[in-house]
């Protein structure tokens, strides 16, 4: 069993931006979702775990090794797919995967070859293996990204916004691959797409303004709000009045008509109808709550 423990991690950039504030997490094998809006600190946290930036305070322990002191301890077991990445020009997928595999310590040529072949097939890139990666489409490049992350024997796989910009088929294929490998390793999935977390993760944390505002099992979190989410149709002109009056966590447009979703322990008026709670409601509710808390603070 692999464990990743983040203790009270804080990161303040030199311009004063607080990217992480007292983040504490304990993650073991399986898929762990890191949910948060843009700029919440998800990428900062991932880069910190990968040893690509140092913490201002706190620590990151992987399988008992403090990686803030020695990042190489985690890199030996890391498969990392950054949010954005490029590749060297004039290099085919084969050449580049071979290069990264060697850097990851896969020295046996036969094993390396077999693993690269398998990954190329798994990511549906086998047909394109001899093409320059720099000429790949966005989706192909993402798949190449996961292939390189899975090279070697990673015990911690971190994927940062992996499904952004992928079409549904690509996205499903991608999530399948992650799900397949997650049984014996930690897969840390960072995203702002709630659906990805819902279908994949057994545990998750919501990050907002550099802080963990909620963590737990998605189903438990959903159950916690069971019967407390109400929907009401609303005109745009009345939305502000509604927001002032009730705890509106989100709004949605459906067939050109706006509906507001409100958190309430009980039905407020007959205009409100109870809706089944999903993870998105949890997410918005927590974000709303965290903002209010932070303003109040």
């Amino acid at each position: 069993m692999n464990t990743l423990v983040i203790n009270n991690a804080s990161k303040v950039y030199s311009n004063g931006t607080k990217a992480l504030e007292h983040v504490s997490l304990k993650i073991s094998n399986g898929m762990f979702g890191l949910l948060g809006p843009n700029g919440a600190g998800k990428s900062s946290l991932m880069r910190t775990i990968a040893g690509l930036q140092t913490l201002t305070s706190g620590s990151v322990i992987f399988n008992g090794n403090d990686i803030s002191k020695d990042p190489s301890k985690i890199r030996q077991h890391l498969g990392y797919l950054p949010q954005e990445f490029g590749v060297y020009p004039r290099m085919s997928a084969l050449d580049l995967l071979n290069h990264i595999a060697i850097l990851k310590g896969v020295l046996n040529k036969k094993e390396r070859q077999e693993q690269i072949e398998a990954l190329l097939i798994k990511t549906n890139l086998f047909e394109h293996r001899k093409k320059f990666v720099s000429n790949y489409s966005g989706g192909m490049r993402r798949r190449f990204g996961i292939a390189q992350a899975l090279l070697g024997n990673p015990k911690l796989i971190m994927v940062d916004e992996p499904t952004a910009g992928l079409d549904p088929e690509e996205r499903n294929r991608f999530l399948d691959v992650l799900s397949e490998v997650s049984s014996s390793v930690i897969v840390l999935l960072s995203t702002h797409i709630v659906e990805d977390i819902r279908v994949l993760c057994s545990n998750m944390a919501i990050l907002s303004n550099g802080q963990i505002v909620k963590q737990g099992n998605p189903n438990d979190l959903i159950n916690g709000l069971h019967g407390k989410i109400w929907k009401t149709p609303v005109l745009k002109s009345e939305l502000n009045v509604l927001k002032d009056k009730y705890n509106v966590i989100s709004t949605r447009l459906l067939a050109g008509k706006t509906s507001a979703y409100v958190f309430s322990e009980e039905q407020l008026t007959t205009d409100f109808e109870s809706v089944p709670t999903d993870l998105e409601h949890v997410y918005f509710h927590i974000l709303k709550t965290s903002k209010t808390t932070s303003y109040a603070a």
Binding site: A50, S72, Q76, P82, E84, F85, G105, G145
Partner: peptide, 10 residues
């Protein structure tokens, strides 16, 4: 933009 992959290698 290949640095994060390269830098994360062991």
């Amino acid at each position: 933009n290949f640095n994060e992959i390269l830098d994360a290698a062991p």
